[in-house]
Design a protein around this nucleic acid. Structure first.
Lengths: 297, 297
DNA sequence: CTAATGGATAAATATTACTTATTCAATCCA
DNA sequence: TGGATTGAATAAGTAATATTTATCCATTAG
């Protein structure tokens, strides 16, 4: 049982396809087939049921799926520990973060990080919190920054940031002078909303509670484009205060609090407690943490 | 970092020699050198200090030495779990046991074991308790049967057997009629003693306490040969009661208790709590355990 | 000072893994 | 239903990797 074979096996099991796994691993399908076959021979039993063109894990396959991940993790950890034995942090630090964090948090953090750890390569997996937690479970990410709350027993969570969702309108908008707005005020407006993700879910929930039917005129995937669109007078939206700092200062956009209880969005740093944290990852969490304590004090 | 490379590395570290490790792994020395070199390149640092013809682990090497064992263990465990996923026990069960256990305990245990698990191959590492615990620490043994007490935090200990050391003399010996003998009686005799091992240590200690100088006329490595020699009138010895059952029944040897506190020798089953116990190993311990409960009731 | 030991190196060879080309079966869709 | 397509297995050729053989060099033991 080679680590390469286990890697191939896990990828096949995840993708539920020999061909897809082959692509991901930059080899051809027969190569993957051969590796799986070798594994099956060594284990004395089939790992996949080939039902026509669909494949399923056998009981033995399920066992290997669980154990295999641990094995590869321990392998990575071992390599890391040895490499860092001289005291230096090195290797690659893989961070998972959502779009907003990438734009408004990570640049400053990495500025400080790179100053102290220039040797460390950084890889960022940008996606919704949910996806990040998924990659985390597969041990493909060292540290994640996600929307709270998360409830997983094997994750350490450090709250780092919290922000209020406010209505954002273009500078000359009819609501721009208001000190606050009600939900009802929004119904008549062209609404531009994020597409997918935690914030979107939150907004859906609120509108359902208010019994207002959410009348969305546009859906956009990024905060930046939402701001641009709002700025161009195409509609209004709800975003985290801090994401529009520059535009409010420049008097392009206006932020207005919603009446009623604040809509708070909390971000937190997460990492697995059942995995070794590389020196680089430790350093990263410390920087984020220290910036956070400074900010909140 | 290949598992093969790690295996080679660990062997070199244990043997403190590339050549010896090569022999053990059935390859040539340059092959081992190449594997270590590849590891060193991948880790970005030397794993061994080559000081002339002696080699030492570098700090990084020490790290790999610790982590590597865990990695290989997890690898073995993974393979085992998958192989046993169908519910059947298989593979090889490696037992560590001292000579006496091999002769007087294991045959009966394995008779029962093989009846229920004919598929399992059995490998026995026969040596003194101390060596067995060493191999155990290297994860090269599944279950051990050793002289108690053992005090190691990661070992589960199940007492299975206890026996009294008694004086053994040939049937026609001048002490043969005695109901018991004193230490002093032994001084005038030709003493045949085991060579090395726990029992020997125990006897040494006792004699030191009694301030008698141990006057050994012969040292033998096995219980069987001690009995033969005693039977042939070459001297007398001290052995566990149960090891001479056949000979006392056949009236070849005579066992006589020592005066004073009994010299008890306790055996126990041990296995590591921080390692996965194969189905076969579980079955083995259960058989030993059940035989023990029956015997003591 | 010589012989022997132990590891490094180089070239040749064996082994293993991978790719390309192809086949076969299952599923999709018209 | 019947091509068309997808996905995995197989076979043969090729590339990559590991291992051996042969040799060298440094250290150490006698």
């Amino acid at each position: 049982m080679d680590l390469d074979q286990v890697t191939a096996f896990l990828e096949v099991a995840r993708k539920k396809s020999f061909s897809r796994a082959a692509e991901k691993l930059y080899r051809t399908q027969p190569a993957i087939s051969a590796q799986i076959r070798a594994l099956e021979i060594e284990c004395g039993q089939k790992l996949f049921d080939r039902m026509g063109r669909k494949i399923f894990l056998t009981p033995a396959g399920k066992v290997l799926f669980e154990c295999g991940e641990n094995l590869l993790s321990l392998h990575r950890e071992t390599l890391q520990r040895v490499r860092e034995a001289n005291g230096a942090a090195g290797g690659t630090l893989v961070i998972g973060a959502n779009e907003a964090t990438c734009l408004y948090v990570l640049p400053q953090v990495f500025a400080e990080f790179k100053r102290n750890y220039p040797q460390v390569a950084i890889s960022i997996y940008r996606n919704f919190s949910q996806k990040i937690l998924l990659k985390m479970a597969e041990s493909q990410i060292d540290v994640g920054i996600v929307t709270l709350p998360v409830a997983q027993s094997n994750l350490k969570v450090i709250p780092i940031f919290e922000d209020e969702l406010q209505v954002v309108v273009p500078a000359g908008h009819r609501l721009a002078k208001r000190a606050s707005v009600k939900m009802e005020d929004l119904v008549e407006e062209q609404l531009i909303f994020p597409k997918g993700g935690h914030t979107r879910e939150l907004l859906e929930k609120i509108f359902r509670k208010q019994r207002s039917r959410l009348q969305i005129s546009m859906e956009l995937a990024s905060v930046e484009s939402i701001k641009k669109f709002v700025g161009a007078g195409l509609g209004i939206s709800l975003i985290s205060r801090s994401y529009a700092e520059a535009e409010t200062k420049a008097n392009i956009l206006k932020l207005i609090p919603l009446q009623g209880p604040k809509l708070v969005r909390r971000l937190g740093l997460v990492y697995r407690t059942d995995r070794h944290l590389s020196r680089a990852a430790q350093a990263f969490t410390e920087i984020v943490h220290s910036r956070n304590s400074k900010a909140s004090s």
